[in-house]
Amino acid sequence: MAPPRSPSSRATTAKRETLEDRALAQASSPPLPPRAGIGLKPEHYRAVLDSAAEDLWLEVHPENYMVAGGPRLAWLEAIRARHPVSFHGVGASLGGPDPFDADHLRALKELIARFEPAVVSEHVAWSAARGRYFADLFPLPRTDEALCWLASRIDAFQTALGRRILIENPSVYLPLKSEMDEPDFLVELCARTGCGLLLDVNNVYVSANNTGFDANAYLDTIPGHLIGEVHLAGHESDARKGEALLIDTHGAPVSAPVWALFHRLIERVGSRPTLIERDANIPPIEELMAEREQANVVLQRQLELA
């Protein structure tokens, strides 16, 4: 179960060139527009397919489409014919002790080949061990050992998929003893593997609240060129500890302080594809589209300034 130490730091330069070549080879799928998209939910398939919203893009968990056939795939195909799509994976367990799941990897590659997502992302987390899948995102201490292990896994995952991925910063609930700050940890992972960042502003807010750091200072540290996508979501207070422990439930509207962090981030780095992410207490699509519009106002203003 011991993860091997990674040799990837020695191969950084060569690795980057290969991945840039791969990125060019992917030019057939159009990039996500630097506007706001929404997470695609089955209850909204029809409304999304019929939507005339300009520059709308959709994000899905590819694991929800790892099925033999039927309407789910048909809906995604119809929607993909009209709008760009991104894949936000939840099942790779990049930071975990087990080898990659061969069935999962095969299914993911088939879906990528079929739907040509503009972006593929995953989490800086682990979710499987001892043959069991936990359907959750477990934390890792930010140590040199974890950094090397994650870098080797991201490298292997990108190689298996034949493309660059974005990695998402976690929501932190436990103050794990660590050797480096999270921004440094993430930036170093990007440097070693050529991957980019999916910056989840709500996760930064939740983690800052739960472990006591300055969310603005964190965001100000992230180099803009690494940010390929931004996530905005809602959180809820823990039933036992209240506001002292915020849980990243994706079950509520984006909160005011997260909007404020988002404004500041976009003013600094420029517009980025931004997802309104909602996975629980799914509201009518109009509510998600209203949040999308709120994000678009910020993104549009920045595009006009640029």
């Binding site: 694991e63 929800n64 790892m66 099925v67 099942g91 790779a92 367990s93 799941d101 069935d103 999962h104 299914a107 499987a128 043959g131 069991r132 899948y133 936990f134 359907a135």
Partner: peptide, 10 residues
């Protein structure tokens, strides 16, 4: 019967 596959659809 905990989940063993990476997709919970089935």
């Amino acid at each position: 019967a905990p989940p063993r596959t990476r997709s919970l659809v089935g």
